[in-house]
Design a protein around this nucleic acid. Sequence first.
DNA 1: GACAAGTTGCCCGG
DNA 2: CCGGGCAACTTGTC
Length: 606
Amino acid sequence: MKSGSASNKVVLYWHRTDLRLHDSPALHAALALNPSVFIPIWTWDPHYVYRSRVGPNRWRFLLECQSDLSHSYSQLNSKQKLWVVREAPLTVLPKLWKQWDITHLVFEKDTDSYARDRDDAVLRLAHEAGVEVIVKMGRNLFDPDELVRKNGGKPTMSISQVEKAAGQINHAQPDQPWDTPKSIPHPWEQDKMDLGSMEHEIAEPTPDLNSNHRIAKDTQYSLIMGPKNDFAVPTMEEIGIDSSLAISPHRGGESVALTMLSNYIQDDEYIGTFEKPKTSPAAFEPQSTTLLSPHLHFGTLSVRKFWWDVQGDLNKRKQEKKPNATIPTNLLGQLLFRDMYFAAQAAVGEPFSRTYGNKAVRFIDWHLQSEPQQGADNVLPARAYEIDSAEAEEWFQRWKTGRTGFPWIDALMRQLKQEGWIHHLGRHSVACFLTRGGCYVSWERGAEVFEELLIDHETACNVGNWMWLSCTAFFSQFYRCYSPVAFGKKWDPSGEFVRRYVPELARFDKKFIYEPWKAPIADQKKWGCRVTNDDSAGDGQVYPKPMFDFDERRQVCMDRMKNAYDVGLHGADEQVLNGSWRQLFGEDGDDHQGPKAKKQKTLEGD
DNA sequence: GACAAGTTGCCCGG
DNA sequence: CCGGGCAACTTGTC
């Protein structure tokens, strides 16, 4: 190496939220130690493998990210790769430190609540083992904890709060990105890298929230270095996930992400005029937004590089006197929203992803509420919910599987399942429909489905957006309700999007494409699809009737929202924690009852 | 206490 | 494509 003799530092670099080489503050810090031995690892945390909901598309996307990173390491140093270890971090890390004579452990800061606890435990173990630990923030524009401090210790609940708080951090400009390293030190010689003689602890697979996606026994934990003892990135077969269901066209990996970004950046008209509310949720091939969110999630794209590359285009256009869209609707604003949700989560901590015990969110008397987990640990495995209404349960299942009978909703839910991605406004449509604008089902049920199916699933952002749409936090104008008919029609009057994802209706006239149940029977026959709940009807295809009258449901939901706002409970209130909230809302939970709190309020007023 | 602002509603009229 | 009515939320500022 040209930088002279290396130190005697042996650095273990732990990849988690940062599957990239470019602009990684943690990787930069690790290499700045000038290590004589450098070992970049991934280790499979059972919390992700079994206790997080991960569908086939995201599994494959993650494996692609790992393969790409491993390949990039090998290109910089033919002895290097991403060393994929199959054991839980808390048990395997101390053994690796010993086996590989590690002096330093380096990783990127993760402010998700589970990760904080895990990393705190790792810090304690490292201290005991005499291993020095370096942790660097690189996942966000601004350190979520620092944003919270600048926001008076409170969760960031609006973009203006974020702008104000970020303004006190380097004038609201994130740090400049680091370059990609030009060389990577060697690992140990092959025989020392070998873990064959190390004790191996196999992760406990129950409960396995992803068992419904496995077609074979999950064997990834049976051999610590993988089936060929070469630390290779696992295959879908090794983890037992059905790869025939991983049909998303969206690809993982740092090189894919950087190519996508540079293509967008070359088009300064697209970057400069981007306004999120004006991008179409019905666009496909190509979509109207960047599709870079999954890369931000896995850290295959640095959010700070994204920021500064966009800023570069905006500065250039400014000099050329071309107009630029502004925060919050422009691309920079989108990245700030991501930081807003991270900082809100960082402030609230573990209860952030649910209502129960969460003081930052409004309590609403949804159907299918999460059951409080008395004395449960933070992990919340298969989160239980109360089926208080068989009707609502059926609506939820039909929503999830794209059989509501509303083509716009069903098209979006089928796109979600197939591709692992839908446009932000499409997420608005289906989230409003499930919660305050249709089914009146708890937002937590919807968030869990998104957690499973989205390739860009980010807990802070997903949960935050569900709170937004359900008007439980961040947003409160519940009288602004998305129509499952009008909203799609506005963006896509001829219904191309519906035809693509609900092929049964492909031949329907555009007059009926959003409301096929209104088409005359003769036309339904002519267009090859009967709109009926009788699956055996006719010879051709069948599409269900709408599962309820939307206008009727909108009114019911709005009345109940008004009532819930009048009651005014929040997730950490006594009445929520002890279950007595039911008395405040009326015991039978009848959708058609009048608002109860209104009356109480009037009495108080007297 | 009034008033404005808040990334992305719908419907109708011009 | 724009504006107002619809019926009406919270937060921040004056």
